[in-house]
Amino acid sequence: MNAMTGIFKIHLKYKNYWFTLPWCILLLNFSINWTIGYFFEEEFYTGGLSSIYVYIFIMGTILLHQTFPFAIGLSIRRTDYYWGTAAISVIVTLLSSILLMPLSIIETKFTEGWGVSLHYFNLPYLSDGSILEQMWISFVLLLFFFYLGFVTASVHRRYGKIGLLLLSVAAFLASSLGIFLMSYYKWWGSLFTSMADLSAFQIASWTFPITLILAGISYLLLRRSTV
């Protein structure tokens, strides 16, 4: 028997939570926005698409809490748990980004904003670039948000509530210090100019190495986690 069988079986039980539920939420969110767009005369831009990113972030945090103690209890290796979960998360985010693409095309090319001038799946700046570039943007962003949630849960698993609290305090202090320094040295202007030169594709690509680092951190944390 393959060492991964157990962990894949666990995740397959979660197929509705990996797939059906986020797309239902997205659909509901979309229909609300469409209704608003229907009564709204002008072009209507909405950030409703972010719900899928928020969802995958929450999925990252809850999943570990729900499945890790169970998996370890069934003698699944931490390493196998980690790689099994990583494989599923990549498959799901990849599929989601592939699914988002045709919706964006329908919105712009065929329906003129779903008949009500609604900009939901295709947003200015974010949806610049080729089809492949757009898919890459949603893929790396989804993966980034998943691992952001997953690493948070890993810190909680490894160091408990206090560890998580200390981490948030540290993150808050670091960002405050960063903002202070940026203001003190008047760096904001140059930051925005250089940001403006970057495309969404370039910025999204920058999250990828960060995602890899987060994934590596959660691996190291889970290897030393107990239940």
Binding site: T5, G6, F8, K13, L74
Partner: peptide
Amino acid sequence: DVLDVAGGCFK
């Protein structure tokens, strides 16, 4: 579900 997963873990 629990029994199904356990079945995948023990040879």
